[in-house]
């Protein structure tokens, strides 16, 4: 009988190993292979193609534009994310659950839809077009619209990271701070913010990754003006269309590198946050 049990155990172990191998194979095939392909293509084209691409004014401008859009998006979603999360968790008001649901809309919408909505609002003949036209501000087919749609798409990340942490921390520490004489602002900066800092950082990292990689909405509102409204992802899109594949792959490799770097940052942040959470 013990022999039978022994074979059962061996069978289960073989089954488990099979599953692990399957998972690893799946991950390698779907997630790593594309990265490997890009690295391989760039390596094959040689170092000269890298330096050639990365010194082109269009490419440099594209990276610069991506950086501007990303930094502004992170700042805006960071500040508003903290405020909205705080209101959602700490305040009780009519429509709170509605707001809670609305916050997730950007997750559900296709970025292309978001871009089209921006055209309806700010595009030629759009609702707000006369307002900005009268003031000589170019919104659509320019940086403002590109930033706006990116912000819209990135809104949920910080909020969704901070809300559960705020909920878990509860009100006690903030109450304690107030009974000790601290103002609302002092309480926020010295007690609440330090408690949500890793969640905020994690949210910012996710937002950055998303903002850098965004293409659908930006594609529609940018008007694709080469050297003017072309972000890094749009550059790749156009370069590929125009069969400048070497350039496209080099820029793609840079973006992939940034993403992998961010991924490492995100992972380490998550570890710190989990460590923090076990403290009570």
């Amino acid at each position: 009988m013990s022999v039978a049990v022994g074979t059962q155990v061996a069978k289960a172990r073989r089954g488990r190993r099979g599953l692990i191998a399957l998972t690893l194979g799946w991950v390698a095939l779907l997630l790593l292979l594309p990265l490997v392909a890009i690295v391989w293509t760039v390596a094959k084209a040689g170092l000269s193609s890298v330096t050639h691409t990365l010194t082109q004014p269009d490419v440099l401008h594209a990276f610069q534009l991506t950086a501007i859009v990303t930094v502004i998006t992170v700042l805006v979603t960071g500040v508003f994310g903290v405020i909205v999360a705080w209101v959602l968790v700490r305040q009780r008001f009519h429509g709170r659950s509605l707001l809670n649901a609305i916050v997730d809309i950007p997750f559900a919408l296709s970025p292309v839809t978001v871009g089209l909505a921006a055209v309806v609002l700010f595009g030629p003949g759009g609702w707000f077009a006369p307002f900005f036209q009268a003031r000589g501000i170019q919104v659509i087919y320019a940086l403002p619209a590109m930033i706006l749609v990116t912000i819209f798409i990135c809104i949920p990340f910080t909020i969704r990271e901070i809300v559960p942490v705020l909920e878990e921390i509860g009100l006690d520490e903030e109450d304690a701070s107030r009974t000790l004489g601290a103002s609302v602002w002092h309480t926020f900066f010295k007690v609440t913010l330090p408690n949500i800092r890793w969640a905020l950082a994690y949210g910012i990292a996710l937002t950055t990754a998303r903002a850098i990689g965004e293409i659908g909405a930006v594609l529609i509102v940018s008007g694709l003006i080469q050297g003017k409204t072309e972000t890094a992802t749009l550059f790749i899109f156009r370069a590929y269309e125009e069969r400048q594949t070497a350039e496209a792959y080099v820029v793609a490799l840079v973006l992939a590198g940034v993403s992998v770097g961010l991924l490492i940052v995100i992972e380490s942040l998550r570890h710190r946050q989990e460590k923090e959470r076990t403290r009570t």
Partner: peptide
């Protein structure tokens, strides 16, 4: 001075 059931110490 207020003392809470679950201490409410500033954890950081």
């Amino acid at each position: 001075g207020f003392v809470f059931q679950h201490y409410a110490l500033f954890r950081h």
